[in-house]
C-alpha cells in the first residue's frame, strides 16, 4: 500500500480511536437522541398522512406502499451490505453504483430466457447467475485489482447497461410465465407475494447481518480493515461476499420487477440515486449512526410513505422530488448537528 493511503488510513484509525474514547454511555445517549429524532420524523410524517390523506391508513394502501417499495428495498439492502462491509468513507469506502444497471440486466436475462422457452426454473437460475456474476466482477475489481469501489462499479454499471441493450435491443420485452403470473397474482394469507418477499428478505438479512458471526465480522471489516486483519479475519473474502450478496439481491429484485412490468423495460438504471439515498439515509435510524438493515427498512418505508402520501394528498408530482430531498436533508442535518454538539 502506498504512502498516501497508509497515511489516510492512519488518520482514519486515529479518528476511530478518538470516537472510541467517548464514554460509552454518552455516545449511546447521543445516538439514541438522533435515532429518536429520525424515527420521530417518520412517525410525524405517518401521522400527518393518516389524518390528512384520505385512504392512507387502509390496509390495501399500506400493502401497496410495501409492494411499491420492494424493488428499491432489495437494492438498498444490497447497497447497505456493501457499505457495511466497505466502510462509510465517501471516496474509498464501499459503494456499488452498478446496482441499477444490474437490475435492468437481470430483468432482461430473465425475460429473454423465458421467451426462449427455457422455463421458469432455468430462467431463475440464469438470473441469479447473472446477478452474482456482476457481483463477482465488482468483487474482483475491488478486492483483486484494488480499484476504488466508486470507480470499479461505475465501469461495471456501463457494461451492464450496455449488455441490457444488447439483450433487449432497447425495446420492451414482454414475458409470460407461470412464475411471473404467480408472483403478480398470488396472495398467500392476504398479502401479495411481493409483500412477502420484502418481509422475508428483511427478516433474513436482519438476522444474517446483525446476529450471525458472519454479519458481525462483516461489520468489523467495515469498521476498520486493519483491526479486522489483525484479528485474523479474511478481509478480502468478506468484501467480495458483500458485492456478491448485493448481486444476488439484485437478481431477486429483477424477478419481482419483471412480474410488475410483465417483462423487461428500459430505464431500470434510473433507480440508482434513490438506492444510494435510501441506503445512506439508513444511518440515521441506527444506534451507531452507520448504515444497517433495520435502518434501511425504515428509510425505504419513509420514502415509500412520502411518495404515496403526496399522491393521496394530490400534491403535484413536480414537488415530490424536491420535498423528498429537503425532508431527507433535514433528517440528516439533525443527525450531524447533534453529532457535532456531542463532540464539543
Amino acid at each position: 500500500m502506498d504512502g498516501a493511503i497508509d497515511q489516510r488510513l492512519g488518520v482514519a484509525l486515529a479518528t476511530e480511536d478518538a470516537e472510541a474514547e467517548v464514554p460509552p454511555l454518552k455516545r449511546n445517549r447521543r445516538g439514541g437522541f438522533v435515532r429518536f429524532a429520525a424515527i420521530g420524523a417518520l412517525l410525524i410524517v405517518f401521522v400527518v398522512f393518516a389524518i390528512a390523506a384520505p385512504g392512507f391508513l387502509t390496509r390495501g394502501n399500506l400493502t401497496n406502499v410495501v409492494e411499491q417499495s420492494t424493488v428499491l428495498a432489495l437494492l438498498a439492502f444490497g447497497m447497505s451490505i456493501v457499505i457495511i462491509g466497505g466502510g462509510g468513507d465517501v471516496i474509498r469506502g464501499g459503494i456499488d453504483l452498478s446496482l441499477g444497471a444490474n437490475l435492468g440486466l437481470c430483468a432482461a436475462v430473465f425475460t429473454v430466457a423465458v421467451n426462449a422457452g427455457l422455463g421458469d426454473a432455468t430462467a431463475t437460475v440464469l438470473t441469479f447467475a447473472a446477478g452474482a456474476s456482476v457481483g463477482l466482477v465488482n468483487a474482483f475489481a475491488v478486492v483483486g485489482l484494488g480499484i476504488l469501489p466508486l470507480l470499479a462499479t461505475l465501469a461495471v454499471m456501463n457494461i451492464c447497461a450496455g449488455l441490457e441493450l444488447v439483450l433487449t435491443q432497447n425495446t420492451v420485452l414482454t414475458a409470460n410465465s407461470p412464475l411471473l403470473a404467480y408472483i403478480a397474482g398470488a396472495t398467500p394469507l392476504g398479502f401479495s407475494l411481493t409483500d412477502w418477499t420484502f418481509l422475508g428478505t428483511a427478516l433474513l438479512l436482519l438476522v444474517v447481518v446483525h446476529a450471525t458471526p458472519w454479519g458481525l465480522r462483516l461489520q468489523a471489516v467495515g469498521g476498520s480493515v486493519q483491526a479486522a486483519r489483525s484479528a485474523g479475519l479474511r478481509v478480502p473474502l468478506y468484501l467480495a461476499l458483500s458485492y456478491v450478496s448485493a448481486g444476488l439481491l439484485v437478481a431477486l429484485a429483477a424477478i419481482v420487477q419483471a412480474a410488475r412490468l410483465s417483462g423487461s423495460s428500459p430505464g431500470s438504471g434510473d433507480i440508482l440515486l434513490s438506492v444510494v439515498l435510501t441506503s445512506l439515509m439508513s444511518a440515521v435510524f441506527s444506534r451507531r449512526l452507520l448504515p444497517s438493515i433495520g435502518g434501511t427498512i425504515l428509510s425505504v418505508l419513509f420514502i415509500g410513505c412520502l411518495i404515496n402520501g403526496f399522491q393521496l394528498l394530490n400534491v403535484s408530482s413536480y414537488w415530490v422530488n424536491g420535498v423528498q430531498g429537503v425532508l431527507i436533508l433535514l433528517v440528516v442535518a439533525v443527525r450531524s448537528v447533534s453529532r457535532r454538539s456531542g463532540e464539543v
Binding site: 385512504g55 394502501n61 424493488v71 431500470s268 433507480i271
Partner: peptide, 13 residues
C-alpha cells in the same frame, strides 16, 4: 415502475 406504482395507488383512490 414509477407510473405503475402511481396507477396502483390511483386505483386505491
Amino acid at each position: 415502475s414509477r407510473q405503475i406504482s402511481q396507477i396502483q395507488t390511483l386505483i386505491a383512490q
